[in-house]
Computed example of a mutant assay.
Amino acid sequence: MPRILLVEDDDSVRISLAKALGRYGHEVDAAPTGEQGLRMYRERAPELVVLDLMLPEIDGFEVCRRVRAAGNVPVIMLTARGDDTDIVGGLEAGADDYVVKPVEPRVMDARIKAVLRRGTPAPTEQPSTASFRDLIIDRASMTVTKAGREVALTPTELRLLLELSESPGRVLTRQQLLESVWDHSYLGDSRLVDNGVQRLRAKIETDTTAPVFIQTVRGFGYRFGPV
């Protein structure tokens, strides 16, 4: 049973969503403020955080940054509107996905399950270990090392790297990546992909201004190199 931390200051939303997610089989801890959310995060060690952005005391952006700095637990942010500033700010703070309120519990359950699945390797005929210069990807153990040091990746970052590296040299569109990594079967938000690539590059590239492993194909998407 996945342990979820829900941080939401609206009492009615927090209580109803926590109960609904419980019916879907999640174990939910709920906090009304950012400060309490961070305390529960340290005490309860959740597998995923659902985080409202507009919180008292410490806002959701700062909570997300602190959660991300502490480890690789995935974060789904809740935003009251499809505001570009909120969405971009949340993604830049380290969120893996976002849902615009009001959200139906079944939709939130689907987003949670999709994020948690990213830590599970997809079936592949690829060798379990592949080396690309000083980057080693072990699909069996789900570990990545760079210059001999293990790289700490979130489930989303790991899934993105596995997807891109499965066929080096092949160009994948943002929509293809949204479907295979984020499980968005509809025309989703390409900012999820671009932000995910940016965060992944920061961890595996020696020089993010001249990326070697994740190359942008302008007007199309991304490909994995070197080839």
Rank of each mutant, 00 (worst) to 15 (best):
M77K: 09
Y222K: 05
H26L: 12
H184S: 05
G94D: 02
L53K: 13
D189S: 02
V197L: 09
G169M: 06
E150Q: 13
Y41W: 15
H26P: 00
R170L: 14
T124D: 13
G34L: 12
I58A: 05
E35L: 13
R133K: 13
T143M: 11
N195Y: 07
E8L: 10
M142R: 15
I136D: 08
I15N: 07
E104M: 04
L192C: 02
R106S: 09
E43H: 12
A20P: 04
A69D: 15
S141L: 06
G37L: 08
E92I: 02
V227H: 12
L116G: 09
V227G: 06
S12C: 01
L178C: 05
T79Q: 02
D189F: 03
Q175W: 02
A210P: 00
P105L: 00
L177D: 00
R44K: 14
A69P: 07
R117C: 02
G119Y: 10
G221M: 03
A202W: 06
T208Y: 01
L53D: 00
R201I: 12
V73H: 12
R118V: 07
K203D: 14
L187D: 05
L192K: 10
K203E: 10
I204F: 07
I15V: 14
K113T: 04
R111T: 07
D10L: 04
E179G: 02
L53Y: 03
R81K: 15
L177H: 01
K146L: 13
E62G: 08
S167G: 01
L55Y: 01
R65N: 12
R42S: 14
E125Y: 13
R111E: 00
E150G: 01
E163K: 09
L160H: 06
K113D: 11
E166A: 11
V217Q: 14
R191K: 12
R68V: 14
L17H: 09
A93V: 06
G119R: 15
T129I: 14
I214K: 04
M108L: 15
V171W: 05
S167T: 08
H26E: 10
M1Q: 07
A110L: 06
R133S: 13
V197Q: 02
P32K: 14
P105C: 04
N72T: 15
V13P: 04
Q176K: 07
R118I: 03
D59S: 12
T124S: 15
